[in-house]
Write a protein that binds this DNA or RNA. Structure first.
Length: 605
RNA sequence: GCCCCUGUGGCGCAAUGGUAGCGCAGCCGAUUUGUAAUCGGCAGGUUUGGGGUUCGAAUCCCCACUGGGGCUCCA
């Protein structure tokens, strides 16, 4: 693995004075510091390219921009970089930085640029693609000059703290038809403290990785025998999942959705009618033949829900008809993109389809948003960003319907006082949509919720309802998923809570720890008493010391550790320790039961 | 799919061409303990699979598969 061990590598930081660096950013707002970091990182990328060219003079250089958390630069080299190479490059960069070269900008003609970069085919390609009215500029430091529009820091010494992180393949301009270059990722900051903090955060994120916690908390597992991208849920994870799903079902019924169920395969003609065989073929698995008929594993639930709709002639009185299902779908994902629970080949959508009349859409979209916030809030997500995607160039349906639908989406958002961005032309070909991103505890964005109009399927399946004039009309159809994929959502939950789930979600809410064997009977009696109240409580009856049992329960991130010994048995109480280490001392059993029940009801952490 | 890396008992790791080891977990026994690991023993691996090089392969080579980091934040 071409990856540095963050624990064992020294952070390389420049020891030079920073006199030339304007530190106004430090006492200004965070926007200022971001601008400074962009400059530092972009400059670090140049220095890295310089170092690589010194060490590997045959390298062809691609692009080297700053990114959200660092920078990268792409190179074409005959031999891919090794971790040793990264160290050498880092060392050379430190040398370059210590020379305190200043970054000099020059504006040059297209001709000069082409001459200057004649050894660099990727730069030539970039120059050729520049608009003729754009002035061409380069930045140089020392002997290295790069095609660049800047901006940069003043001198290399301003790159106060940097570190190279990983090397990876990356297609030139991201297109897999182009050659694959070697990309080196690094990061840089305005101070070594900030760099160390960033590296520390990376380590923390690694500890929260749902794939690691999934194993150590015994939540789910994957197996060669089953296949990549296919997960099995172990009992603890299945418990967590079923709690999530049960809450989802209850809430949907409260919100007037009707649960439905549908099979996992359907005949080819269903998918021909829906159009999936045409436009979604790449993500569908090969058909299986049953009695000389072709059947496909479902990549989506909508055709089945449409069949439920069509199972009788619908009256306008039935609308809006809201059909919901935790529907498991199978989609082909390229092997390289699979990732834990986040990207899999078989997953369960928290799907629903709303069939309604045109004058109901605004209200219905609003209700979807309200339900979304209620649901996500329960799981501890209350930072959102919303994007509205409008009509693309290629679309089906009538422009008027698009406008009406887009307008209803906008009004639903605005009437709730929410801010949003507009992705002009970013809608699917079949309808406009709202996407919602949640932010987790590490401020990472996850797109879960999507609400999409569909002007395609009602037409293809000839959906109708009888209106109040006895005429047949076509309903509007809305697809929506709030959690997105249950698998992925639980992956996000694991990372958000770092495995320490709130009491209502914890697979095991309390572990009874008898101090010695003679307390087992009392422990069992508490267990059955509290289980009968719906508390998920177990007894650690192993012949281990109390300390070992506490440690295990801590590691399993169980919310309550219930220690029982002579004095507790005597007073019909329990000694409660929380997983944050707090010792609540002895409390009567009914009081403990109340404590847990309250935490469950209030969904407190 | 593509590039690079990786694969050793359930899990985490060691052994770099010469007899596969350690820790955790598991099982057995002793201990009966007051808020983050009690002690001792036992068992567990044809080193992901297949092929090759070699007197000899976990180790080198080839193929396949798993897992990991990435693959338009654009000069």
């Amino acid at each position: 693995m071409l990856r540095y061990n963050l624990h064992n590598t020294l952070y390389r930081t420049s020891m030079l004075d920073h006199s030339s660096l304007e530190f106004e950013a430090l006492d200004s707002d965070s926007g200022q510091i971001e601008i400074l970091r962009q400059k530092i990182r972009h400059s670090a990328a140049h220095v890295m390219a310089d170092a690589v060219m010194q060490l590997f003079p045959d390298a062809k250089i691609g692009i080297g921009p700053p990114t959200k958390d660092g920078f990268y630069y792409d190179f074409e080299v005959t031999h891919p970089f090794t971790p040793d190479d990264l160290e050498k490059i880092e060392k050379r960069m430190t040398e370059i930085i210590s020379k305190n070269h200043s970054f000099e900008k020059s504006t040059i003609s297209r001709n000069d640029a082409e001459n200057k970069f004649e050894q660099q085919p990727y730069k030539i390609e970039l120059i050729e693609n520049l608009d003729s009215d754009v002035p061409i500029s380069t930045y140089s430091h020392g002997t290295f000059e790069d095609l660049c529009q800047g901006p940069h820091v003043e001198t290399t010494a301003d790159i106060c703290a940097f570190k190279l992180l990983t090397v990876a393949g990356a297609y030139w301009r991201g297109n897999e038809k182009n050659p694959m270059l070697q990309r080196i990722y690094g990061t840089a900051f305005e101070s070594s403290e900030a760099l160390e903090e960033h590296l520390h955060n990376l380590e923390e994120a690694e500890k929260r990785d749902h794939r690691i916690l999934g194993r150590s908390l015994d939540l789910f597992s994957t197996h060669d025998e089953i296949g990549p991208g296919l997960t099995v849920w172990n009992p603890k994870g299945a418990m967590l999942r079923s709690i999530v799903e049960q809450y989802w079902r209850d809430l949907h019924i409260q919100h007037n959705y009707q649960p439905v169920y549908s099979p996992h395969i359907g005949r080819s003609n269903l998918w021909e009618t829906s159009g999936h065989l045409g436009f979604y073929n790449e993500n569908m698995y090969a058909p299986m033949e049953i009695d000389e008929q072709q059947y496909y594993l479902k990549p989506m639930n909508c055709p089945f829900h449409i069949m439920v709709y069509k199972s009788s002639l619908r009256s306008y009185r039935e609308l809006p008809l809201k059909l919901s299902e935790l529907g498991t779908v199978y989609r082909y994902e390229r092997s390289g993109v699979l990732h834990g629970l986040m990207r899999v080949r078989g997953f369960t959508q928290d799907d629903a389809h709303i069939f309604c009349m045109p004058d109901q859409i605004e209200d219905e979209i609003g209700k979807v948003l309200d339900l979304t916030f209620e649901l996500l809030d329960a799981f501890g997500f209350n930072n959102y960003s919303i994007a509205l995607s409008t009509r693309p160039e290629k679309y089906v349906g009538e422009a008027m319907m698009w406008d009406h639908a887009t307008d209803s989406l906008r009004k639903a958002i605005e009437s709730r006082g929410l801010t949003y961005t507009i992705d002009e032309g970013g809608g699917a070909f079949y309808g406009p949509k709202i996407d919602l991103n949640i932010q987790d505890a590490l401020n990472r964005d996850w797109q879960c919720t999507t609400v999409q109009f569909d002007f395609n399927l009602p037409e293809r399946f000839d959906l109708v309802f009888q209106n109040d004039n006895g005429e047949r009309a076509q309903p509007y159809m809305i697809h929506r998923a709030i959690l997105g994929s249950i698998e992925r959502f639980i992956g996000i939950l694991i990372e958000h809570y770092s495995g320490a789930f709130p009491v209502w979600l914890a697979p095991v809410q309390a572990m009874i720890i008898p101090i010695s064997d003679r307390h087992l009977e009392y422990a069992d009696s508490i267990q059955s008493a509290l289980s009968s109240h719906g508390i998920r409580i177990e007894v650690d009856s192993r012949r281990d010391r109390m300390n070992a049992k506490i440690r295990d329960a801590q590691m399993q991130k169980i919310p309550y550790m219930v220690v029982v010994g002579d004095s507790e048995a005597e007073s019909q109480s329990v000694s409660v320790r929380l997983r944050d280490g707090t010792n609540l001392g002895a409390i009567p059993i009914p009081e403990f039961q109340e404590l847990v029940s309250l935490a469950v009801t209030n969904k407190t952490i």
